[in-house]
Amino acid sequence: MTEPIDTSIYSAVTAAIQTEAQRILAAGLVTAIVGYAASRRNGSTQPIIVTDAAAAEKLIFTPASVNNLALYLTKAKKEIPKKGKIGIVVKGCDLKAIVGLMGEAQLKRNDLYLIGVPCAGVLASTVQPSTALTADTIASKCTECDARLPSDCDYVPNVQLPTQPQLAGKYAVEIARLEALTPAERWAYWKEQFAKCIKCYACRQVCPFCFCEQCLCDRNKPQMVDTTPRPAGNTAWHIVRAMHLAGRCAGCAECERVCPMDIPLNLLNRKMAKELKELYDYEAGFEVNDKGPLTTYTDKDDQSFIK
């Protein structure tokens, strides 16, 4: 039996979200709230858009509240009212994405009512939604989470986060393992991973930062990246994607969650985040930055790799 993770606060969190949602909808502070609701499968949740105070009771928060709802503010906002403030339920990792989107002029703070969730972790995509949260079933990203308590939100339920068992950072371990290999071994690893890719672009669809109207990888004049799902094009796609997310990715790991072929995509993003932290002391956080690490510079940046 692996170490259980205490998620007892989630019922209090759910109650608090419902009360707050009802209050702000009734008071007309927001026109809609994006949150989680129970889904048909046992224990699962699905995103919901609540526009009526009476429906606020549908909102819940459970270890199966895996989605990054930030997506519903930008790319997937078809059902979101066009006028008024929008409330949104955010975990720390999701908030980082929203903050990143604000830095890239895709969202405005004033248009949002942020309901922050004190989060003990959510389930990995590979387990059933009704599974209990343990050190084994927790999502990889949660093992290295430094943002369990969102800050600068409009509302955060007043509950005490339980102490967490020490979890080994799954990405850190895997990155270290790959870094220790030879280039040829790493190439073989990624070749096998990327070979699985079916170019469904689910990773792109779900990524809050893939907000380009026309993706570079869909262009054919000139064709920068082969669009067919063949190994050469797949590899190029994932390299270009990781590069475009470098210094922007907030670490929500949605790409990895939705990948039907289980390609460890967030590993690339975490590796880039690690490098940018080491090189430029940059990390995605709760503070809106004017510029990211790759849109600014200092005259003293490392150039040990340049002859």
Binding site: A184, R186, W190, I239
Partner: peptide, 9 residues
């Protein structure tokens, strides 16, 4: 760094 990580020498 990215190229190195995917195994380019």
């Amino acid at each position: 760094k990215l190229l190195e990580f995917v195994g380019v020498d």
